[in-house]
Amino acid sequence: MIVEQGSVRIDLLGGTLDIHPINLVLPNAYTLNLATSLKARVELKEINFPGIRFITKDYGQTREFKTEELNKANLETTLFGNFNFFVRILLLFSVKKNLEITLSSGSPPGAGLGGSSAMGITFYKAILKLLKVEEDKESIIRKVKDIEAILLDSGQTGYQDYYPALYGGVLALIPAIGGVKVSQLYSEKLKNAIEARMTLVFTGEMRFSGLNNWEVYKGFFNKNNVIRSGLSSIAQYAKEAYQAITSDDLDTFFELIKKEGEAREKLFPQIVVDSQRKLLGEIKKDIKDIGMKVCGAGGGGCFILIHKKDEFSIVEKHVKSSLMSILDFTVEKPI
């Protein structure tokens, strides 16, 4: 059996800036994120069935497709449903083996943690392992990103979601002509600080954060001053956060995440829902300087709360009373 895992990410600062060529036009378009212990998981097992059997643990669903059905023509139909993404990768490699493929996302759907992209990367890595083929990381990202863009059919997509599953750690993605520079910022000190001062909360609501990228893209290149100014502020906070980490000023780093969250909400008010605002208001009665940032560039079902280490019990109490849930995570080491 082949088993492969890949981290979903928490975006810290600079989401939306990872859309090409906004990332090149806008100065200092840094994007910072981290690889979590919440992981997509793929299991591949050769079987006697003449084709492919998919099993999804998240939905308790099993689908089988015979070998003769696995062709490019059927990609343009509804035959494969939610498995179209994976069939495209199988066809990319011309996989001839009869396989049982078990999928587990590692995070709630619509959480804003880049789960579908992490799953795509993880599945691609599993196929590489199955076929005993090696491929460089940037090539993997380009191909999986292209396939997901076809399926989303919503214009340009961001690139940050694909990196944590391949690189691990805490990343700064720095755009450059011809590609993206990956700066690994991980340290044990940073890991411990993030785990102590950042709480990941799931509202229980599915929200697909990538779906507003097209509106941002159009607004930016239509020279919408509000969008350009807002993204410039986000870029400035992200660059300063990068500098804070590299100069070991972690208090400033956490304050900048708060500021980025506020700037993002101001630019995209719809990304914060009433239940999140209500929870934040309740926590502020006990913790005046609590900070919140919604996960996903355009708002997903998860958000992070920024607090001091000794304030976690207060945060936990309020989250539980709100009927939301805390997703426990640790920061993964670099791969």
Rank of each mutant, 00 (worst) to 15 (best):
D310N: 12
V294S: 09
I227Y: 00
G298R: 03
A176D: 05
L171W: 03
G15W: 05
L44E: 03
G299E: 03
L279C: 11
C295K: 00
V315E: 02
G120P: 08
F80R: 05
I283N: 00
I304M: 12
N33C: 12
R228Y: 07
V87C: 08
V8N: 09
S313L: 14
G155L: 11
M119L: 15
T203Q: 08
A73V: 14
F86H: 08
I234L: 15
H318I: 15
G115Y: 04
A40W: 00
G298Y: 01
T246K: 08
A297I: 07
K320Q: 13
K218V: 12
Q160P: 00
L267F: 03
K132I: 10
V201T: 12
I335H: 09
A40R: 00
S37N: 05
N212R: 10
A176N: 11
K288R: 10
A35F: 00
F208E: 07
G296T: 11
A165Y: 01
C295I: 02
E148Y: 01
S187W: 10
I147G: 04
S313N: 13
N222K: 13
S116I: 11
T16W: 11
P108H: 04
I2G: 01
F329P: 03
Y124F: 15
P175H: 01
I140R: 01
K309L: 11
I10Q: 00
E240T: 08
N212G: 03
V42N: 04
N28M: 13
S187R: 05
G15A: 07
L151I: 15
S183F: 01
I141M: 06
F54M: 10
A35M: 03
E134D: 11
L151T: 07
D11E: 09
N225K: 13
F65D: 07
D146E: 13
L267T: 10
D11M: 06
L113A: 02
S209P: 04
E240R: 08
E76M: 08
L113G: 00
G301N: 04
K96A: 09
Y242M: 06
A165V: 07
Y59M: 13
P27M: 10
N84C: 14
G106D: 05
D249P: 05
F123K: 00
Q243D: 12
A241I: 03
T122A: 06
Y242S: 01
P334W: 00
L173I: 14
V144Q: 01
V182Y: 00
A73Q: 09
G60M: 12
K288V: 15
T122Y: 02
L267E: 01
K143A: 02
I147C: 11
F303Y: 13
I287Q: 08
V273F: 10
T78S: 14
I306G: 06
L91W: 02
V8A: 04
K145E: 09
K39L: 06
A73S: 13
L327K: 02
R197Q: 12
I245Y: 03
A297T: 02
P334M: 08
L323H: 12
T16K: 04
S321E: 15
F49Y: 15
I19A: 02
K239W: 13
L44S: 02
R53W: 05
